[in-house]
């Protein structure tokens, strides 16, 4: 589904973030990308989204080379990916309802469908009573649940979660990880970037370990070993 072929990302002469990375993620996999802060986990997720271009090498999404894809194709690929971030990346000037609806509007969905689906998703995620609140009126856990609702509403093929539990307490952390596991069981591909040892060791899924810009380990049912 996603393939990295000898990918290198250099920001400046002295900042080589990723060096000759090659790996593949298959459909339905749950892959954790681990490593210390600044090792290049976020850069890796941004490369998948086409938000950055590799310095060398190729990245393929379902056979499409992101280096040569036109902007419209990249935007279409992004709409197939749901993203969850540590800092939530919500739209601050839009309400809870509008944040989720925006994703469907970007897809060009009809208003009737949006009016039907958004309240349903928000109800499931436990934010049914806060549809008119703005993000700054929500707790950290609620913000992350909203980010998850937004990531799921368009039924994406992949979920990229970049340090999704970084700002959460243990209870909310457990909730988010359980939710990701459920989504994966429903057949979605999950890419989880984290440096949380406990989460990785409990998951028992594939772990790709980055160090000094290189993959030093890629194990099925891996552990957090740095």
């Amino acid at each position: 589904m996603i393939k990295f072929n000898n990918v290198t990302k250099i920001y400046s002469q002295s900042t080589v973030v990723l060096q000759d990375i090659s790996f593949e993620i298959k459909e339905g996999e749950f892959v954790s990308v681990v490593g210390k802060s600044g090792v290049g986990k976020t850069t890796l997720t941004r490369l998948i989204l086409g938000l950055e271009a590799p310095t060398s090498g190729e990245i393929y999404f379902k056979g499409e080379n992101l280096n040569t894809a036109d902007p419209a194709k990249i935007q279409e690929i992004r709409r197939k990916i749901g993203c969850i971030y540590q800092d939530y990346k919500l739209l601050p000037k839009k309400t809870v309802y509008e944040n989720v609806a925006y994703i469907m509007q970007v897809e060009g969905k009809e208003n009737e469908e949006i009016d039907r689906e958004v309240p349903k998703v928000l109800e499931i995620i436990g934010l049914g009573g806060k549809i008119n609140n703005f993000p700054d009126q929500l707790s950290g856990g609620e913000k992350q649940r909203l980010a998850i609702a937004r990531a799921l509403v368009n039924n994406p093929e992949i979920i990229i979660a970049d340090e999704p539990t970084g700002n959460l307490d243990p209870y909310n952390t457990y909730e988010v990880i359980s939710l990701l596991q459920k989504i994966n069981k429903a057949g979605k591909t999950i890419i989880l970037a984290t440096h949380d040892r406990e989460i990785i060791n409990k998951l028992g899924k594939r772990v790709v370990t980055l160090e000094n810009g290189k993959i030093i380990r890629d194990e099925q049912a891996g552990k957090f070993i740095i």
Binding site: R78, R79, C83, K89, K93, V106, R150
Partner: peptide, 16 residues
């Protein structure tokens, strides 16, 4: 600026 970045991330077209 952050909002524009988020919009890009979720696949909004430049026109949108």
């Amino acid at each position: 600026k952050e909002e524009i970045n988020t919009m890009k991330t979720v696949g909004a077209s430049n026109q949108f």
